[in-house]
């Protein structure tokens, strides 16, 4: 018998009520039950960070959290970053710095950076590099990612 749970998730501001099996990870719930396929799975054991989302504003591996654990929580995914079709500053910086090639890791890095810059608005490049080390990218060698996040930190600082 499947252990089923009725849960409520607010994803990027939209509330969803659904029944999930207890063992379904938040990543699978988001991707396959709710269609937020921007969150990716690259390892399912916490190393790659492709599945990074924000749970109540704080970054988390969606592969290491069960959907049912997030019941009642507010989830932010990559789909919520752009508004009205306008890319966010972070998304634009990723493109300008060529911080993505295949793009599979990109949503994870964007969400990681989003959470990080919200908590630490004044990072040094070294600190950015250290936080970028939380996730894996196999294509870029990370340089563009570090530059993009540093650019955004700088420009947000200047516009404050």
């Amino acid at each position: 018998m499947k252990d089923l749970q009725l849960i409520t998730l607010t994803v990027n501001g939209t509330e969803h009520e659904l029944v999930v099996e207890s063992r379904r990870t938040l990543a699978d719930v988001l991707r396959h039950d709710l269609g937020y396929t921007g969150t990716h799975l690259g390892c399912e054991h916490g190393i790659c960070g492709a599945c990074t989302v924000l749970i109540d504003g704080s970054p988390a591996r969606a592969c290491l959290t069960f959907g049912v654990q997030a019941d009642g929580c507010s989830i932010s995914t990559v789909e919520g970053l752009a508004s009205d079709g306008e890319l966010s500053d972070l998304q634009r910086a990723f493109s300008e710095r060529h911080a993505l090639q295949c793009g599979f890791c990109t949503p994870g890095f964007l969400m990681l950076a989003e959470a990080y810059l919200a908590e630490y608005p004044n990072p040094s490049t070294e600190e950015v590099r250290e936080v970028v080390a939380a996730n894996l990218c196999r294509c870029t060698g990370y340089q563009g990612i570090v530059e993009a996040i540093s650019d955004v930190a700088r420009s947000r600082r200047e516009s404050r």
């Binding site: 290491l64 990681l112 959470a115 990080y116 936080v131 939380a134």
Partner: peptide
């Protein structure tokens, strides 16, 4: 300990 998103959980 691990990385930022590990430490938050």
């Amino acid at each position: 300990i691990g990385h930022y998103p590990i430490r938050t959980r």
